[in-house]
Design a binder for these strands. Structure first.
Lengths: 199, 199
DNA sequence: CTTCAACTTTACCGATCGGTACAAAGTAAA
DNA sequence: TTTACTTTGTACCGATCGGTAAAGTTGAAG
Protein backbone atom coordinates (compact mmCIF):
# COMPACT_ATOMS: atom_id res chain seq x y z
CA UNK A 1 0.00 0.00 0.00
CA UNK A 2 1.63 3.25 -1.10
CA UNK A 3 1.88 5.89 1.55
CA UNK A 4 0.24 9.12 0.50
CA UNK A 5 2.70 11.39 2.34
CA UNK A 6 5.66 11.81 0.05
CA UNK A 7 5.66 15.56 0.07
CA UNK A 8 9.21 16.81 0.18
CA UNK A 9 8.31 20.42 0.95
CA UNK A 10 5.93 21.99 3.45
CA UNK A 11 2.83 22.86 1.48
CA UNK A 12 1.47 25.45 3.90
CA UNK A 13 4.85 27.09 4.28
CA UNK A 14 5.11 27.31 0.50
CA UNK A 15 1.65 28.86 0.41
CA UNK A 16 2.69 31.39 3.01
CA UNK A 17 5.76 32.27 0.98
CA UNK A 18 3.62 32.72 -2.12
CA UNK A 19 1.26 34.94 -0.14
CA UNK A 20 4.21 37.13 0.83
CA UNK A 21 5.28 37.53 -2.79
CA UNK A 22 1.77 38.43 -3.97
CA UNK A 23 1.50 40.81 -1.00
CA UNK A 24 4.64 42.59 -2.05
CA UNK A 25 4.32 42.56 -5.84
CA UNK A 26 0.66 41.99 -6.62
CA UNK A 27 -0.58 39.39 -9.08
CA UNK A 28 0.99 40.69 -12.27
CA UNK A 29 4.22 41.75 -10.63
CA UNK A 30 4.81 38.33 -9.11
CA UNK A 31 6.44 36.14 -11.75
CA UNK A 32 6.54 32.39 -11.49
CA UNK A 33 10.27 32.71 -10.89
CA UNK A 34 9.68 35.05 -7.97
CA UNK A 35 7.07 32.72 -6.54
CA UNK A 36 8.86 29.41 -6.90
CA UNK A 37 12.13 30.88 -5.63
CA UNK A 38 10.43 32.19 -2.50
CA UNK A 39 8.54 28.93 -2.05
CA UNK A 40 11.76 26.94 -2.34
CA UNK A 41 10.44 24.72 -5.11
CA UNK A 42 10.56 24.79 -8.88
CA UNK A 43 7.89 25.34 -11.43
CA UNK A 44 6.73 21.75 -12.11
CA UNK A 45 6.32 21.16 -8.36
CA UNK A 46 4.23 24.29 -8.08
CA UNK A 47 2.15 23.23 -11.04
CA UNK A 48 1.63 19.72 -9.66
CA UNK A 49 0.69 21.00 -6.22
CA UNK A 50 -1.50 24.01 -6.93
CA UNK A 51 -2.49 23.85 -10.61
CA UNK A 52 -1.33 27.17 -11.98
CA UNK A 53 -0.56 30.73 -11.00
CA UNK A 54 -4.22 31.66 -10.88
CA UNK A 55 -5.33 29.01 -8.36
CA UNK A 56 -2.14 29.58 -6.39
CA UNK A 57 -3.23 33.19 -6.06
CA UNK A 58 -6.69 32.15 -4.91
CA UNK A 59 -5.20 29.81 -2.29
CA UNK A 60 -2.75 32.48 -1.17
CA UNK A 61 -5.59 34.98 -0.88
CA UNK A 62 -7.61 32.60 1.27
CA UNK A 63 -4.54 32.02 3.40
CA UNK A 64 -4.17 35.77 3.87
CA UNK A 65 -7.77 36.16 4.97
CA UNK A 66 -7.55 33.30 7.46
CA UNK A 67 -4.10 33.98 8.88
CA UNK A 68 -3.97 37.78 8.81
CA UNK A 69 -7.28 39.47 8.16
CA UNK A 70 -9.41 37.33 10.44
CA UNK A 71 -7.21 38.02 13.46
CA UNK A 72 -7.86 41.74 13.30
CA UNK A 73 -11.61 41.32 12.97
CA UNK A 74 -11.75 39.28 16.17
CA UNK A 75 -10.93 42.49 18.04
CA UNK A 76 -14.45 43.61 17.19
CA UNK A 77 -16.01 40.77 19.13
CA UNK A 78 -14.11 41.03 22.42
CA UNK A 79 -17.07 40.85 24.77
CA UNK A 80 -15.33 42.34 27.77
CA UNK A 81 -14.76 45.75 26.11
CA UNK A 82 -17.15 48.52 25.24
CA UNK A 83 -17.76 49.50 21.62
CA UNK A 84 -15.35 52.43 21.27
CA UNK A 85 -12.59 50.32 22.80
CA UNK A 86 -13.29 47.44 20.46
CA UNK A 87 -13.39 49.68 17.40
CA UNK A 88 -10.18 51.40 18.41
CA UNK A 89 -8.52 48.04 19.02
CA UNK A 90 -9.66 46.84 15.61
CA UNK A 91 -8.43 49.90 13.76
CA UNK A 92 -5.13 49.89 15.61
CA UNK A 93 -4.65 46.19 15.01
CA UNK A 94 -5.18 46.58 11.26
CA UNK A 95 -2.81 49.53 11.07
CA UNK A 96 -0.12 47.72 13.02
CA UNK A 97 -0.42 44.86 10.57
CA UNK A 98 -0.12 47.23 7.63
CA UNK A 99 3.11 48.62 9.06
CA UNK A 100 4.58 45.34 10.33
CA UNK A 101 8.28 44.91 9.63
CA UNK A 102 8.02 41.17 9.04
CA UNK A 103 5.55 41.45 6.19
CA UNK A 104 5.18 43.63 3.08
CA UNK A 105 3.80 47.07 3.78
CA UNK A 106 0.14 47.86 3.25
CA UNK A 107 -2.77 45.54 2.66
CA UNK A 108 -2.66 42.49 0.39
CA UNK A 109 -6.33 42.91 -0.49
CA UNK A 110 -6.21 46.64 -1.21
CA UNK A 111 -3.22 46.14 -3.45
CA UNK A 112 -4.84 43.41 -5.50
CA UNK A 113 -8.22 45.15 -5.71
CA UNK A 114 -6.41 48.12 -7.16
CA UNK A 115 -4.64 45.91 -9.64
CA UNK A 116 -7.84 44.11 -10.56
CA UNK A 117 -9.29 47.21 -12.19
CA UNK A 118 -6.47 47.22 -14.72
CA UNK A 119 -7.87 44.17 -16.52
CA UNK A 120 -4.55 42.36 -16.30
CA UNK A 121 -5.72 39.62 -13.91
CA UNK A 122 -7.65 36.43 -14.74
CA UNK A 123 -11.35 36.25 -13.99
CA UNK A 124 -11.42 33.82 -11.08
CA UNK A 125 -8.62 35.69 -9.32
CA UNK A 126 -10.57 38.94 -9.65
CA UNK A 127 -13.70 37.25 -8.34
CA UNK A 128 -11.89 35.92 -5.27
CA UNK A 129 -10.25 39.21 -4.42
CA UNK A 130 -13.52 41.10 -4.84
CA UNK A 131 -15.25 38.58 -2.62
CA UNK A 132 -12.84 38.83 0.29
CA UNK A 133 -12.61 42.61 -0.02
CA UNK A 134 -16.18 42.78 1.29
CA UNK A 135 -15.51 40.91 4.53
CA UNK A 136 -14.22 43.81 6.61
CA UNK A 137 -16.97 46.16 5.46
CA UNK A 138 -19.61 43.58 6.20
CA UNK A 139 -18.19 42.88 9.65
CA UNK A 140 -18.40 46.58 10.51
CA UNK A 141 -21.92 46.90 9.16
CA UNK A 142 -22.93 43.93 11.30
CA UNK A 143 -21.44 45.50 14.40
CA UNK A 144 -23.10 48.86 13.82
CA UNK A 145 -26.39 47.18 12.99
CA UNK A 146 -26.72 44.51 15.65
CA UNK A 147 -24.45 45.40 18.57
CA UNK A 148 -26.52 46.47 21.56
CA UNK A 149 -24.16 49.27 22.50
CA UNK A 150 -24.13 50.52 18.93
CA UNK A 151 -27.90 50.77 18.94
CA UNK A 152 -27.83 52.68 22.22
CA UNK A 153 -25.44 55.14 20.63
CA UNK A 154 -27.72 55.44 17.59
CA UNK A 155 -24.96 54.19 15.30
CA UNK A 156 -27.31 51.68 13.68
CA UNK A 157 -29.28 54.33 11.79
CA UNK A 158 -26.42 55.06 9.40
CA UNK A 159 -24.62 51.76 9.86
CA UNK A 160 -23.47 51.56 6.25
CA UNK A 161 -22.24 55.13 6.24
CA UNK A 162 -20.20 54.62 9.39
CA UNK A 163 -18.82 51.31 8.18
CA UNK A 164 -17.93 52.85 4.82
CA UNK A 165 -16.12 55.70 6.53
CA UNK A 166 -13.99 53.37 8.64
CA UNK A 167 -13.21 51.11 5.70
CA UNK A 168 -12.23 54.16 3.68
CA UNK A 169 -10.00 55.24 6.54
CA UNK A 170 -8.34 51.82 6.70
CA UNK A 171 -7.91 51.75 2.92
CA UNK A 172 -6.18 55.08 3.34
CA UNK A 173 -3.83 53.87 6.05
CA UNK A 174 -3.05 50.86 3.88
CA UNK A 175 -2.01 53.16 1.05
CA UNK A 176 0.00 55.35 3.40
CA UNK A 177 1.73 52.36 4.97
CA UNK A 178 2.48 51.00 1.51
CA UNK A 179 4.07 54.34 0.66
CA UNK A 180 6.34 54.12 3.69
CA UNK A 181 4.49 55.94 6.47
CA UNK A 182 5.19 54.24 9.81
CA UNK A 183 2.71 53.21 12.47
CA UNK A 184 3.97 55.97 14.79
CA UNK A 185 2.45 58.39 12.26
CA UNK A 186 -0.66 56.35 11.44
CA UNK A 187 -1.86 55.15 14.84
CA UNK A 188 -2.59 58.71 16.08
CA UNK A 189 -5.05 59.07 13.21
CA UNK A 190 -7.33 56.49 14.84
CA UNK A 191 -8.55 59.08 17.34
CA UNK A 192 -9.53 61.41 14.49
CA UNK A 193 -11.27 58.62 12.61
CA UNK A 194 -13.30 57.84 15.72
CA UNK A 195 -14.36 61.46 15.88
CA UNK A 196 -15.61 61.08 12.31
CA UNK A 197 -18.30 58.66 13.49
CA UNK A 198 -19.00 60.62 16.64
CA UNK A 199 -16.99 58.54 19.12
CA UNK B 1 16.06 76.14 -43.69
CA UNK B 2 14.24 73.03 -42.52
CA UNK B 3 11.10 73.69 -40.54
CA UNK B 4 11.12 72.04 -37.12
CA UNK B 5 7.40 71.25 -37.09
CA UNK B 6 7.01 68.02 -38.96
CA UNK B 7 5.06 66.21 -36.29
CA UNK B 8 2.32 64.15 -37.87
CA UNK B 9 0.54 63.39 -34.59
CA UNK B 10 -0.50 65.61 -31.68
CA UNK B 11 2.20 65.15 -29.09
CA UNK B 12 0.18 66.39 -26.12
CA UNK B 13 -2.83 64.34 -27.12
CA UNK B 14 -0.62 61.26 -27.33
CA UNK B 15 0.74 62.08 -23.88
CA UNK B 16 -2.76 62.38 -22.52
CA UNK B 17 -3.65 59.00 -24.01
CA UNK B 18 -0.57 57.46 -22.43
CA UNK B 19 -1.52 59.02 -19.09
CA UNK B 20 -4.94 57.37 -19.33
CA UNK B 21 -3.38 53.95 -19.92
CA UNK B 22 -0.96 54.28 -17.01
CA UNK B 23 -3.85 55.54 -14.89
CA UNK B 24 -5.86 52.46 -15.67
CA UNK B 25 -3.17 49.77 -15.68
CA UNK B 26 -0.23 51.15 -13.74
CA UNK B 27 3.34 51.09 -15.02
CA UNK B 28 3.91 47.37 -15.23
CA UNK B 29 0.43 46.59 -16.49
CA UNK B 30 0.69 49.04 -19.37
CA UNK B 31 2.47 47.31 -22.23
CA UNK B 32 4.00 49.20 -25.11
CA UNK B 33 1.28 47.75 -27.29
CA UNK B 34 -1.41 49.14 -24.98
CA UNK B 35 0.29 52.52 -24.93
CA UNK B 36 1.02 52.95 -28.63
CA UNK B 37 -2.41 51.70 -29.61
CA UNK B 38 -4.09 54.25 -27.34
CA UNK B 39 -1.72 56.97 -28.51
CA UNK B 40 -2.51 56.19 -32.14
CA UNK B 41 1.13 55.76 -33.11
CA UNK B 42 3.50 52.84 -33.39
CA UNK B 43 6.49 51.91 -31.35
CA UNK B 44 9.28 53.61 -33.34
CA UNK B 45 7.36 56.90 -33.25
CA UNK B 46 6.93 56.61 -29.50
CA UNK B 47 10.60 55.85 -29.07
CA UNK B 48 11.65 58.75 -31.30
CA UNK B 49 9.37 61.20 -29.54
CA UNK B 50 9.70 60.28 -25.86
CA UNK B 51 12.77 58.05 -25.52
CA UNK B 52 11.44 54.94 -23.86
CA UNK B 53 8.66 53.65 -21.64
CA UNK B 54 10.30 55.03 -18.52
CA UNK B 55 10.56 58.67 -19.63
CA UNK B 56 7.12 58.38 -21.22
CA UNK B 57 5.83 57.48 -17.78
CA UNK B 58 7.62 60.45 -16.21
CA UNK B 59 6.13 62.82 -18.80
CA UNK B 60 2.69 61.27 -18.36
CA UNK B 61 2.97 61.66 -14.60
CA UNK B 62 3.88 65.32 -14.94
CA UNK B 63 0.95 65.75 -17.30
CA UNK B 64 -1.35 64.20 -14.70
CA UNK B 65 -0.12 66.53 -11.98
CA UNK B 66 -0.54 69.62 -14.13
CA UNK B 67 -3.82 68.76 -15.82
CA UNK B 68 -5.65 66.90 -13.03
CA UNK B 69 -4.07 67.17 -9.62
CA UNK B 70 -3.29 70.87 -9.72
CA UNK B 71 -6.89 71.80 -10.47
CA UNK B 72 -8.15 70.25 -7.26
CA UNK B 73 -5.51 71.96 -5.14
CA UNK B 74 -6.57 75.36 -6.40
CA UNK B 75 -9.79 74.92 -4.42
CA UNK B 76 -7.67 75.39 -1.30
CA UNK B 77 -6.69 78.90 -2.31
CA UNK B 78 -10.10 80.39 -3.19
CA UNK B 79 -9.80 83.65 -1.25
CA UNK B 80 -13.50 84.39 -1.11
CA UNK B 81 -14.34 81.30 0.95
CA UNK B 82 -13.68 80.44 4.58
CA UNK B 83 -11.43 77.56 5.53
CA UNK B 84 -14.01 74.81 6.11
CA UNK B 85 -15.64 75.65 2.79
CA UNK B 86 -12.32 75.53 0.98
CA UNK B 87 -11.33 72.24 2.56
CA UNK B 88 -14.70 70.71 1.79
CA UNK B 89 -14.50 71.94 -1.79
CA UNK B 90 -11.01 70.47 -2.12
CA UNK B 91 -11.96 67.08 -0.73
CA UNK B 92 -15.13 66.93 -2.82
CA UNK B 93 -13.26 67.97 -5.94
CA UNK B 94 -10.67 65.22 -5.49
CA UNK B 95 -13.33 62.60 -4.84
CA UNK B 96 -15.35 63.65 -7.88
CA UNK B 97 -12.21 63.27 -9.96
CA UNK B 98 -11.59 59.81 -8.52
CA UNK B 99 -15.09 58.74 -9.52
CA UNK B 100 -15.25 60.53 -12.90
CA UNK B 101 -16.78 58.48 -15.68
CA UNK B 102 -14.47 59.88 -18.36
CA UNK B 103 -11.26 58.75 -16.68
CA UNK B 104 -10.05 55.58 -14.97
CA UNK B 105 -11.31 55.16 -11.43
CA UNK B 106 -9.16 56.11 -8.46
CA UNK B 107 -5.96 58.11 -8.32
CA UNK B 108 -3.11 57.75 -10.80
CA UNK B 109 -0.57 58.61 -8.13
CA UNK B 110 -1.92 56.31 -5.44
CA UNK B 111 -1.97 53.45 -7.89
CA UNK B 112 1.62 53.93 -8.99
CA UNK B 113 2.94 54.56 -5.47
CA UNK B 114 1.41 51.24 -4.50
CA UNK B 115 3.04 49.56 -7.47
CA UNK B 116 6.39 51.21 -6.77
CA UNK B 117 6.84 49.22 -3.57
CA UNK B 118 6.84 46.00 -5.54
CA UNK B 119 10.28 46.73 -7.01
CA UNK B 120 9.02 46.17 -10.54
CA UNK B 121 9.44 49.77 -11.71
CA UNK B 122 12.63 51.53 -12.89
CA UNK B 123 14.40 53.93 -10.55
CA UNK B 124 13.67 57.28 -12.19
CA UNK B 125 9.99 56.40 -12.52
CA UNK B 126 9.82 55.57 -8.82
CA UNK B 127 11.60 58.80 -7.96
CA UNK B 128 9.15 60.87 -9.97
CA UNK B 129 6.06 59.23 -8.54
CA UNK B 130 7.39 59.58 -4.98
CA UNK B 131 8.13 63.21 -5.64
CA UNK B 132 4.68 64.15 -6.87
CA UNK B 133 2.98 62.06 -4.20
CA UNK B 134 4.16 64.65 -1.65
CA UNK B 135 2.51 67.64 -3.32
CA UNK B 136 -0.98 67.25 -1.88
CA UNK B 137 0.28 66.58 1.64
CA UNK B 138 2.57 69.59 1.47
CA UNK B 139 -0.20 71.82 0.19
CA UNK B 140 -2.39 70.87 3.16
CA UNK B 141 0.44 71.35 5.64
CA UNK B 142 1.02 74.80 4.17
CA UNK B 143 -2.63 75.72 4.55
CA UNK B 144 -2.85 74.51 8.14
CA UNK B 145 0.45 76.21 8.99
CA UNK B 146 0.16 79.61 7.30
CA UNK B 147 -3.52 80.32 6.66
CA UNK B 148 -4.79 83.03 8.97
CA UNK B 149 -8.10 81.35 9.60
CA UNK B 150 -6.36 78.06 10.32
CA UNK B 151 -4.27 79.74 13.00
CA UNK B 152 -7.38 81.29 14.55
CA UNK B 153 -8.89 77.82 14.76
CA UNK B 154 -5.69 76.47 16.32
CA UNK B 155 -5.23 74.04 13.45
CA UNK B 156 -1.61 75.08 13.02
CA UNK B 157 -0.44 73.36 16.20
CA UNK B 158 -0.89 69.87 14.74
CA UNK B 159 -0.71 70.90 11.11
CA UNK B 160 1.08 67.74 10.00
CA UNK B 161 -1.32 65.49 11.88
CA UNK B 162 -4.36 67.15 10.33
CA UNK B 163 -2.82 67.10 6.86
CA UNK B 164 -1.87 63.47 7.25
CA UNK B 165 -5.40 62.58 8.31
CA UNK B 166 -6.95 64.24 5.26
CA UNK B 167 -4.41 62.70 2.90
CA UNK B 168 -5.10 59.33 4.44
CA UNK B 169 -8.80 59.92 3.93
CA UNK B 170 -8.29 60.84 0.28
CA UNK B 171 -6.02 57.85 -0.26
CA UNK B 172 -8.88 55.81 1.13
CA UNK B 173 -11.48 57.29 -1.17
CA UNK B 174 -9.10 56.69 -4.07
CA UNK B 175 -8.93 53.00 -3.17
CA UNK B 176 -12.70 52.83 -2.72
CA UNK B 177 -13.34 54.58 -6.02
CA UNK B 178 -10.89 52.25 -7.72
CA UNK B 179 -12.82 49.31 -6.29
CA UNK B 180 -16.03 50.63 -7.78
CA UNK B 181 -17.64 52.75 -5.06
CA UNK B 182 -19.44 55.73 -6.62
CA UNK B 183 -19.25 59.36 -5.62
CA UNK B 184 -22.80 59.24 -4.26
CA UNK B 185 -21.39 56.94 -1.58
CA UNK B 186 -18.06 58.73 -1.09
CA UNK B 187 -19.02 62.40 -1.03
CA UNK B 188 -21.07 62.03 2.18
CA UNK B 189 -17.90 60.86 3.94
CA UNK B 190 -16.41 64.34 3.55
CA UNK B 191 -18.54 65.60 6.44
CA UNK B 192 -17.20 62.85 8.70
CA UNK B 193 -13.63 63.51 7.64
CA UNK B 194 -14.10 67.18 8.54
CA UNK B 195 -15.28 66.11 11.98
CA UNK B 196 -12.02 64.20 12.32
CA UNK B 197 -10.07 67.45 12.31
CA UNK B 198 -12.66 69.26 14.44
CA UNK B 199 -14.47 71.14 11.68
C1' DC C 1 19.52 -5.59 -5.18
C1' DT C 2 15.63 -4.88 -8.05
C1' DT C 3 11.51 -2.59 -9.12
C1' DC C 4 8.28 0.83 -9.36
C1' DA C 5 6.14 4.98 -8.27
C1' DA C 6 6.52 9.72 -6.79
C1' DC C 7 9.14 13.74 -6.85
C1' DT C 8 12.62 17.01 -8.73
C1' DT C 9 15.44 18.84 -12.25
C1' DT C 10 16.61 20.31 -16.78
C1' DA C 11 15.36 21.87 -20.84
C1' DC C 12 12.20 23.64 -23.71
C1' DC C 13 7.43 25.42 -25.74
C1' DG C 14 4.84 29.49 -28.01
C1' DA C 15 3.67 34.13 -26.72
C1' DT C 16 4.74 38.55 -25.34
C1' DC C 17 7.77 41.79 -23.24
C1' DG C 18 10.65 46.44 -24.17
C1' DG C 19 13.35 48.10 -27.73
C1' DT C 20 15.37 48.72 -32.68
C1' DA C 21 17.22 48.20 -37.63
C1' DC C 22 15.73 49.07 -42.04
C1' DA C 23 13.26 50.19 -45.88
C1' DA C 24 8.92 52.13 -47.86
C1' DA C 25 6.21 56.34 -47.92
C1' DG C 26 5.59 61.07 -47.57
C1' DT C 27 7.11 66.12 -47.62
C1' DA C 28 9.53 70.33 -48.72
C1' DA C 29 13.05 72.79 -51.09
C1' DA C 30 15.52 73.18 -55.40
C1' DT D 1 10.76 66.25 -61.39
C1' DT D 2 14.64 65.61 -58.79
C1' DT D 3 16.87 65.64 -54.43
C1' DA D 4 17.43 65.57 -49.43
C1' DC D 5 15.31 64.40 -45.40
C1' DT D 6 11.96 62.95 -41.93
C1' DT D 7 8.19 59.94 -40.55
C1' DT D 8 6.09 55.74 -40.79
C1' DG D 9 5.23 50.60 -41.05
C1' DT D 10 7.26 46.00 -41.06
C1' DA D 11 9.81 42.85 -39.27
C1' DC D 12 12.85 41.48 -36.02
C1' DC D 13 16.11 41.35 -31.66
C1' DG D 14 17.23 38.98 -27.03
C1' DA D 15 14.89 38.35 -22.69
C1' DT D 16 11.25 36.83 -20.00
C1' DC D 17 6.55 35.46 -19.45
C1' DG D 18 3.30 31.25 -17.92
C1' DG D 19 3.30 26.54 -18.61
C1' DT D 20 5.01 21.60 -19.70
C1' DA D 21 7.35 17.21 -21.49
C1' DA D 22 10.69 14.15 -20.38
C1' DA D 23 14.74 12.66 -18.20
C1' DG D 24 17.01 12.17 -13.71
C1' DT D 25 16.77 11.41 -8.64
C1' DT D 26 14.93 9.55 -4.57
C1' DG D 27 12.93 6.16 -1.38
C1' DA D 28 10.29 2.39 0.14
C1' DA D 29 8.26 -2.22 -0.90
C1' DG D 30 9.29 -6.76 -2.54
Amino acid sequence: MPSNSKIKFDRSQALKAAMMVFWKKGYGGASLSDLTEAMGINKPSMYATFGNKEVLFVKATEHYVESVDLVHRQQLLAVESDLPTRLKAYLSSVISGQCCENTPKGCYISLCVSEAEGECIPQTAVAKIKEVSQFAYQALVDVFTHDEEAKQRNLHVDAQLHARFLITFLSGTAAMARAGTGQEALLPLVTQAMKGIGL
